[in-house]
Computed example of a mutant assay.
Amino acid sequence: MTRTQKTVFILVAIIAVILGLTVQRVLSMRSGSDPAALVDAGVIMLPQSRAVPALKMIDQGGEPVALDQLKDKWTLVFFGYTYCPDICPATLAQLRQIKASLSAAEAGRLRVVLVSVDPDRDTPQQLKQYLAYFDKDFVGLRGAVEDIQTLSKALSIPYIPADTRKPGYTVDHSGNLAIIGPDGRQHGFIRAPLNVQKLSARLPVLLTR
């Protein structure tokens, strides 16, 4: 092989690699699986998944739920409460919008869970009535304050327990969501405030993993 032929061969190989990477990049962006696009939508995936504490809470139907058994679907966990004046109703309304934008199959792979940070006032009946305003399939959970704190620390979504002696008290909490995978482990976060348009475009990719 002459020097000219070698040069041509090397150039062709380089061009093939560049074209391959370009095509892969375009296909990735079209499918929405580009990691940068997920970050742009507020989705942060952990480099390694985390175990969810083996806690038991009560859902809005009064039934016990083992948190480490939230499997078979992708679960978005939001810490909030029914007497919240702003963040909670806005977030739940946005989650309803996002879910409505999904196909029936995609929506069937998604679970939304509200963990109450106000168990004193958020009885199962109160949770059931409140969540019904947004989506009948949204799950509400309540438990002991100690368990709620354990869970929030494990998922890295902080809140500050309120002084329940004060009338009309409010609870300081994060608007971020934890992402639990079908394996029952935490895989990431969704940052607040939610971007409905971008999340509606990116979540289907996550739900097919």
Rank of each mutant, 00 (worst) to 15 (best):
T4A: 15
T4K: 13
Q5G: 03
F9I: 03
V12Q: 00
V12K: 00
V17L: 14
V23Y: 08
R25Q: 14
V26P: 00
L27Y: 10
S28D: 09
S28M: 13
S28Y: 04
M29A: 14
R30C: 03
R30Y: 11
G32V: 02
L38W: 14
V39S: 11
V39T: 13
L46H: 05
S49D: 12
S49L: 07
A51N: 13
V52S: 01
P53L: 11
A54R: 11
A54P: 00
M57L: 10
I58C: 03
A66I: 10
D68G: 04
Q69R: 15
K71I: 08
K73D: 04
V77L: 15
F79S: 01
Y81W: 07
P85L: 08
I87S: 08
C88T: 10
P89C: 09
P89A: 08
P89W: 10
P89Q: 11
T91Q: 08
A93H: 03
Q94D: 15
L95H: 05
Q97Y: 08
Q97G: 08
S101K: 06
S103Q: 05
A104E: 10
A104C: 01
A104W: 00
A104N: 02
E106K: 10
E106S: 11
G108W: 10
V113G: 06
V113W: 06
L114S: 00
L114H: 02
V115H: 05
V117D: 09
D120H: 11
R121T: 03
R121G: 02
P124T: 00
P124A: 02
Q126V: 15
Q126E: 13
Q126A: 15
L127T: 05
K128A: 12
Q129M: 13
F134G: 04
F134T: 06
D135W: 08
D137C: 04
D137T: 14
L141Y: 03
L141C: 06
L141T: 01
A144T: 12
E146W: 04
E146Y: 06
I148L: 15
S152E: 05
S152M: 08
K153R: 15
K153F: 07
I160D: 06
R165W: 02
K166A: 13
P167V: 05
G168W: 05
Y169D: 02
V171G: 00
S174W: 08
N176D: 15
A178M: 11
I179F: 02
I179H: 03
G188F: 07
G188R: 07
R191S: 14
R191K: 15
P193Y: 10
V196R: 01
V196S: 04
Q197D: 14
K198F: 04
A201G: 01
R202V: 03
L203N: 01
P204A: 03
L206R: 02
